[in-house]
Write a protein that binds this DNA or RNA. Structure first.
Length: 190
DNA sequence: CCCTGATTCGC
DNA sequence: GCGAATCAGG
């Protein structure tokens, strides 16, 4: 496959719409997301701006020193908020309501401070339990939060089931309370 | 270990 | 110019 005029057009369009490189690649077919990204860069529209920014990134970067880490300029500020939305939530229907869940009403974003289980974390967990998908054991997959809720000895037991990022057994909120210690974790060599 | 884009470099 | 391999991050 080659970058014909109309294929480039599709690329430009979709990239402008904020589609991911893999999505574009899938749409076009015959190319990988790497190809798409490569093309995007060669076209000089790596910066997802319709043309506002000159994006004249002085890529005069010498390829002699691998030590150089100029880092991408990153998006400064997009006036157009990404309409991107993943309403993949099929809306669950509570078949059996387990008990009453009292809500404090104060979400309070996690605030790293104490190394103990912070009240914020606890609040966060309870908050999450409200939104939990309440999966049974068999409904759990590799990418669902396996945080148990309730008493296994009763019917009042289910797993969180919210999407876990990857590798981790829990969703973000539960990871937060599951792993308190450890903070140094930098660099990862292959 | 799913995904994202960014960069390099042989072709 | 192309894009796989790699890198760096979420």
């Amino acid at each position: 496959m080659s970058w014909t005029d109309d294929r480039v057009e599709v690329l430009k369009k979709m990239w402008g719409e904020g589609k991911s490189a893999s999505q574009i690649a899938k749409e076009l077919g015959g190319v990988t997301r790497n190809a798409v990204i490569g093309k995007v860069h060669r076209l000089g529209l790596s910066n997802r701006s319709g043309g506002a920014s000159p994006a004249k990134a002085a890529t005069a970067a010498p390829k002699a020193k691998p030590a150089a880490k100029p880092k991408a300029p990153e998006k400064p500020k997009a006036a157009a908020p990404a309409p991107e939305s993943k309403p993949a939530a099929p809306v669950h229907k509570p078949i059996g309501r387990p008990k009453l869940i009292v809500t404090a009403g104060q979400p309070l974003p996690p605030q790293p401070s104490a190394n103990e289980i912070s009240p914020e974390a606890l609040a966060s967990v309870r908050e999450v339990e409200k939104k939990a998908k309440r999966l049974s054991v068999m409904e759990l997959t590799e990418r669902t939060c396996k945080w148990p809720v309730g008493d296994p000895a009763t019917e009042d037991f289910w797993f969180c089931g919210l999407p876990s990022q990857a590798g981790k057994p829990y969703c973000e909120a539960h990871v937060g309370v599951a792993f308190q210690p450890m903070s140094a974790r930098r660099d990862r060599r292959r």
